[in-house]
């Protein structure tokens, strides 16, 4: 039974959440950061999660990113249930299946652009030459092929976020998770980054992004809104979204 389900997930659903609760105990009060989430995410889909502050967006993304385990309920990534996994197994799952992009870029300052991009490959134990080749290819793809030897601090915000995206892609993840990826960028740069994510989506990458900006959320295929730890609504964008995106001419239509 489980195997059948696993196979199904492999083919279709990358992520399956069933009755997921995440409860924090604050003093003698329980805070339900996630309160009974049911969600299935198809391979290749592009999701934006929005909602008011404290509605549980980050908690959700941390959970999806296997940085955390649900208090109850089940979460399966690529058909693998994470509830019973050890810390090492969760690490391996992140290494193999996930890529993270953060609001504040989170590059490692003492490493060069290339070394930052290679980092997941380093932990996978991939041969240094192969890793260097792959880093170069990905850097070219995000438009930073000429910055490989630079330090992150020598780059602009937009360039740093591109490096972060390149790093998140270097292990060929099943899911790309982004927490406010444009939050620290000006509108033009933010749009360029969204263009890059849209392009990745068009190439078949599964992307889940947290944002509180409607213009940014409009790039996604599905807009999920959260309220008090619950899913308030899921809207599918059938038509060409915001004007900015259509002007850019690279929106997912």
């Amino acid at each position: 039974m489980i195997e059948v389900k696993g196979n199904m997930a492999k083919n279709d659903q990358v992520i399956e959440l069933h009755e997921v609760w995440k409860t924090y105990r604050m003093g003698d009060q329980d805070v339900h950061a996630l309160a009974g989430i049911d969600l299935e995410i198809k391979r290749g889909s592009f999701w934006a999660i929005s909602g008011a502050s404290g509605s549980g967006k980050s908690t959700m993304l941390n959970l999806l990113g296997c940085l955390d385990r649900p208090t109850s309920g089940s979460y399966a990534l690529e058909g693998q249930r994470i509830s019973s996994m050890s810390d090492d197994e969760l690490s391996d799952l992140r290494l193999k299946h996930l890529g993270f992009v953060f609001q504040s870029f989170n590059l490692i300052p003492q490493l060069t652009v290339q070394e930052n991009i290679e980092l997941p490959l380093f932990y996978q134990g991939i041969d240094a030459h192969i890793a260097a080749d792959r880093a170069r290819t990905i850097a070219n793809r995000v438009g930073l092929g000429d910055r490989l030897k630079h330090r992150p601090t020598e780059l602009s915000g937009g360039q740093q976020q591109r490096v972060a995206i390149a790093r998140a892609l270097s292990n060929e993840p099943s899911v790309l998770l982004a927490d406010e990826p444009t939050g620290n960028l000006d509108t033009a740069t933010g749009d360029a980054i969204m263009g890059l994510l849209t392009e990745l989506h068009n190439q078949g990458r599964t992307i889940i992004m947290v944002t509180h900006e409607p213009e940014i959320a409009a790039y996604a295929q599905f807009q999920l809104t959260m309220r008090d730890g619950k899913i308030a609504s899921i809207i599918e964008n059938h038509t060409c979204p915001s004007g900015i995106a259509s002007l850019k001419n690279d929106a997912p239509c």
Binding site: L95, L107, I108, P120
Partner: peptide
């Protein structure tokens, strides 16, 4: 601390 968080998020094990 943040560097450690980044490495862990990427998939570094505790041992590493």
């Amino acid at each position: 601390t943040r560097e450690i968080g980044i490495r862990r998020a990427i998939g570094a094990r505790r041992k590493q």
